[in-house]
Amino acid sequence: MIPAPFTYHRPADIASALKILGEYGDDARVVAGGHSLIPMMKLRLTAIDHLIDLQGVESLRGIRVSGRDIRIGAMVTQAEILADRALAAAVPVLAEAALQIADPQVRNLGTIGGNVANGDPGNDLPALMQCLDATYEIEGPGGPRDVAARDFYDSAYVTARADDEILLAVRFTAPEGGAAYVKQKRKIGDYATAATAVALVKSGGKCASASIAMTNLADTPVWAQDAGAALVGTDCSPAAVKAAVAAMQEAISPVEDNRGPVDFKRHVAGRLLAEAIATAWSRA
């Protein structure tokens, strides 16, 4: 459990961080809370010659809530998300999801940026970000650019972010209506067996819009567009939920692992989605 040797850098601003990243290319990697990266290094599954610690980069911190416009700096920890009252009031589902990540020790160090940039399908926040249609602010040698969370994930650990780019912040509009994040795990500190994020808007007793995304049921988070569409115009009755579940199950492609076989995961995903829809509907 001892990582291979590496050189440690601690830049004070983005420009310096980008410079080091540019200089060492593939041999360098940024580290945020380290709670995904360091375990990989300790297991020697990943060897990195130059580790660039972002803890000194002040501009990556801070939560901004202006009305329904939310911007969260990449280095904001999961614990900070839970502690921010304005954020909790504007987007309660974010706290609901963050609270289900690991345990307090991990959340004290793990960041939102690391969680969404990591590209591990087991991370919880990417699906929520897709559900909320968030935008990732990224900066590289060519300057800043925006990427939609729904376009960000290509396959496990492969994302739209280039190796020489840094994620600056996550931006989204707080959802109207009701939302829910429901997760099943084997124990505290475990990643999801299956999890789902649902946001929907109720208008005149009918579902006006719905967005559904799933965690750890494919090699990326899955935004199940058809599943959301199946709810629109309905009153989220059992038949509508059944249709949404069926559409979701079309979109996911879970694999067997220690958490269980494929059939089990599909079934659990369906049950969780039904629960999440009911909860979101009751909150809408």
């Binding site: 099943q184 084997r186 067996t193 958490r259 269980g260 076989p261 059939d263 089990f264 079934h267 659990v268």
Partner: peptide, 16 residues
């Protein structure tokens, strides 16, 4: 009796 194995008992009994 982890979640998946409990689920399998139920599945085998036709409870799903």
């Amino acid at each position: 009796h982890d979640h998946a194995r409990i689920w399998k008992i139920a599945d085998g009994l036709g409870l799903h």
